[in-house]
């Protein structure tokens, strides 16, 4: 990141907001990914050391949203819709068109939804405000999310687990488990690989 908070080689004329931290060696391809980040939290976003966020990724954060991403994680075009908290661990692989959401924003009651939809057309920017509280999403370290999959509000995905392409994760996934389908269900248990090797820990240490 440049001293004026622009990004080297960015095609979008944006800046990284003050409440977004890019740790050393983190790569954010374009500030366009932050266009929908309207969080007013002091520590709204953190992108860990060596993590890369490529084109097509959108951080759609409401005023109280917080997205913290660990180290050496790869996000290759996901949409993160956050009103409370989305935590993503170290060494995660997140594929294209993945949706991670901690809030559906609109109320389940149709009468309440009408109220929000009546208001939004008169609001500048026309962004929906949440009517229901967010339910934090946690994705632990070493998780792989296949392309086009959805992670729904309140879900925790355990360390080392894998979500197959186009799956919809509606409930917690235990560690080292492969889940697939809609709704996603476990199909395989993986062998835990043991502790992260010391040379890798040294590489990502701050």
């Amino acid at each position: 990141m440049n001293p004026d908070r622009t990004l080297e080689g960015d095609w979008h004329p944006g800046r990284v907001p003050e409440n977004v931290t890019l740790e050393e060696g983190a790569y954010l391809e374009t500030t366009y990914s932050l266009l929908l980040c309207r969080s007013v939290e002091p520590d709204a976003m953190r992108i860990g050391k060596g993590t890369s966020i490529y084109l097509g990724t959108m951080f759609d954060l409401g005023p109280g949203g917080r997205v913290h991403i660990g180290r050496c994680t790869l996000i290759n075009g996901a949409r993160i819709q956050c009103e409370a908290s989305v935590e993503i661990g170290d060494f995660c692989l997140i594929s294209w068109n993945v949706l991670i959401m901690d809030c559906e924003r609109l109320a389940t009651d149709p009468v309440a939804r009408r109220a929000a939809l009546s208001l939004v057309s008169s609001r500048p920017g026309r962004l929906l405000e949440r009517q229901v509280p967010g339910r934090p999403v946690r994705i632990r370290q070493n998780v792989w999310l296949g392309f086009d999959c959805c992670v729904l509000p309140g879900v925790e995905i355990g360390e080392g687990s894998v979500v197959g392409a186009r799956s919809v994760v509606t409930r917690d996934v235990p560690p080292y488990t492969v889940v697939v389908g809609n709704p996603a269900r476990p199909v395989r248990i993986l062998e835990p690989g043991g502790p992260v090797p010391p040379e890798i820990l040294a590489l990502v240490a701050s």
Partner: peptide, 28 residues
Amino acid sequence: DDVWIGPCATILKGVRLGAGCRVQAGSL
């Protein structure tokens, strides 16, 4: 009227979604 369809859903031909119903994200 008043239908909510979540992100990443797919609605196929001939379907009628009744008033006020909700379609979860990722559904087909």
